[in-house]
Amino acid sequence: MPTTEAPEFFGGLSAVTETVCGALLLARLLTRLAALPMLVNVALALAPPPASVPWRIPLPWAKSACGGRRS
């Protein structure tokens, strides 16, 4: 069963990487150095998940799009 700490950590790391490196690229500062973490970030975002990760993780507190409880 996956833990909740990993997605929270890597989501924040991805956001910081995109913000900092994106700002450096826009300012044309350290472009080659800033492009490498961005390339890794995009490559990992596009990579398919391993077969052991379930596609849907049931969340008991999640509501459906119509506002009702999921069954």
Rank of each mutant, 00 (worst) to 15 (best):
2 P>W: 06
3 T>W: 01
7 P>R: 03
7 P>D: 06
9 F>D: 09
10 F>D: 01
11 G>N: 07
11 G>W: 05
13 L>V: 02
14 S>Q: 11
15 A>L: 06
16 V>G: 03
17 T>Q: 04
18 E>L: 08
19 T>L: 15
20 V>M: 14
20 V>I: 13
21 C>H: 01
22 G>K: 06
23 A>H: 12
23 A>E: 08
23 A>W: 01
23 A>Q: 08
23 A>R: 11
24 L>D: 01
27 A>L: 07
28 R>N: 09
29 L>G: 06
29 L>F: 12
30 L>Q: 10
31 T>H: 09
32 R>K: 05
32 R>N: 10
32 R>T: 04
34 A>L: 07
36 L>F: 08
38 M>T: 05
38 M>W: 00
39 L>S: 06
40 V>N: 01
40 V>P: 00
41 N>T: 02
41 N>F: 08
42 V>C: 01
43 A>D: 13
43 A>G: 10
46 L>H: 10
48 P>E: 09
48 P>S: 15
48 P>V: 14
49 P>A: 10
52 S>R: 12
54 P>L: 11
55 W>H: 13
56 R>S: 14
57 I>T: 09
59 L>M: 10
60 P>W: 08
60 P>K: 04
60 P>C: 05
61 W>R: 09
64 S>G: 15
67 G>V: 03
67 G>T: 05
69 R>M: 14
70 R>G: 03
70 R>W: 12
70 R>C: 10
71 S>M: 15
